[in-house]
């Protein structure tokens, strides 16, 4: 049902993210300070960096679930709040083991005391290829299926902002590539901030790739690879960029 699918993908009016003066100290050590970040509306921005550089904390700060990091200013690009307008996807699927896949996908509505739109949920499950697993419990699913269910749950929230923390890092290489393609297709038009430690993933999915590094951490110059995501994984140009990034990260 291509018509139905395109209706579902019509994202709410895109907004960007404006972060000013982000700060994080961990065990008395300054991880980052005075960090500014602009995420362009309707685009996918990938955040790369070595572990411990605070990229997950930065994402969680924007999601409103980081008690340790703080910001001098954090708004959407239209001046409104981020809270309530961002969907969050973790590197773990975070599916509730006692709920069927369909009920997991509609968790947000039930938490807000709203009637879940089961038709939309079924449609999203169809788009991530989990139609047959709708009534299964998560423990009956493979790792890739579980992460696809988490992706459907994220999309079900239908928020203009999507914040993803290494969403595919626990998957095997082939499943990861497939899920990247799927995510790029389903998230098109939304403002996505994706944290990853995988340079290839960042370059495949990001309109813009930011590398966070150093101590205290700073953003390097943004990379804007040519072509639209998802870029093919075997593109030689991408691999040249991967080599550059790895070189930068290793410094």
């Amino acid at each position: 049902m291509p018509d139905q699918a395109s209706v579902d993908q019509a994202a709410p009016a895109a907004v960007g993210i404006e972060l000013r003066g982000g700060a994080l100290a961990y065990a008395g050590q300054e991880v980052f300070r005075d960090l500014d970040l602009q995420v362009t509306a309707g685009r996918t921005t990938c955040l790369l960096g070595p572990s411990g550089v605070g990229k997950t904390s930065l994402l969680r700060l924007i999601a409103g679930i980081s008690p340790e990091a703080s910001a001098a200013g954090l708004t959407a690009s239209d001046g409104g709040p981020i809270a309530g307008r961002a969907a969050y996807m973790d590197q773990r699927d975070l599916l509730l083991p006692w709920l069927r896949v369909l009920d997991n996908v509609t968790l947000g509505s039930r938490l807000r005391g709203q009637r879940p739109d089961l038709g939309r949920a079924r449609n999203l499950l169809e788009q991530v290829g989990l139609t047959d697993q709708a009534t299964a419990r998560p423990d009956a699913l493979s790792g890739g299926m579980r992460q696809r269910a988490a992706l459907a749950r994220t999309l079900m929230e239908d928020r203009p902002l999507v914040l993803m923390d290494e969403p595919f890092s626990s998957l095997d290489a082939l499943t990861r590539l497939r899920l990247q393609d799927l995510a790029a297709r389903l998230l098109a038009g939304r403002t996505v901030l994706l944290v990853t430690h995988d340079p290839l993933e960042a370059l495949r999915l990001g309109h813009r790739v930011l590398v966070l590094g150093g101590s205290p951490a700073r953003f390097g110059p943004p990379l804007e690879p040519s072509g639209d995501p998802p870029r093919p994984a075997d593109d030689p140009a991408l691999h040249g960029l991967v080599a550059n990034i790895l070189h930068d990260l290793a410094r």
Binding site: R60, A63, G64, I65, P81, A83, G84, A86, A87, Y88, D90, R92, L94, L96, L107, G108, R110, L111, R112, G113, E157, L163
Partner: peptide
């Protein structure tokens, strides 16, 4: 599991009665 509670918090941000919903559903 703290991850479940974080997820719930992003879903209920800006809505009332989140504490009760979190207890009941999670």
């Amino acid at each position: 599991e703290p991850g479940w509670l974080d997820l719930a918090r992003t879903m209920t941000a800006g809505h009332g009665a989140a504490h009760w919903a979190e207890l009941r559903h999670i």
